[in-house]
């Protein structure tokens, strides 16, 4: 599974970082999310899908 953050949509809410710290972190310079693990390790696929649903800006996408 691949996961991406659309940095144009991302507004840095950091909910992805709170919910899935193994997958996302916030850039310390522009405070947009970036992906830590792509492709997503199998055991984190659920976290990745949940991050999609928990992003207020619909900035995260996953693809199989």
């Amino acid at each position: 599974m691949r996961v991406t953050v659309d940095r144009d949509r991302c507004q840095g809410h950091a909910l992805c970082v709170l919910n899935a710290p193994a997958l996302f972190d916030l850039d310390e310079i522009d405070s947009h999310a970036y992906v830590l693990a792509d492709p997503v390790p199998g055991e984190l696929a659920g976290s990745a899908r949940s991050a999609v649903e928990n992003c207020p800006e619909q900035a995260i996408a996953v693809a199989d």
Binding site: Q11, H13, L15, S50, N54, P56, E57, Q58
Partner: peptide, 18 residues
């Protein structure tokens, strides 16, 4: 499971201090 709330707003003015 899904909580994309807007308690801190959304869009460009999303709360700076969240």
């Amino acid at each position: 499971p899904h909580n994309a709330h807007v308690g801190f707003a959304a869009g460009p003015h999303r709360c700076l201090g969240s």
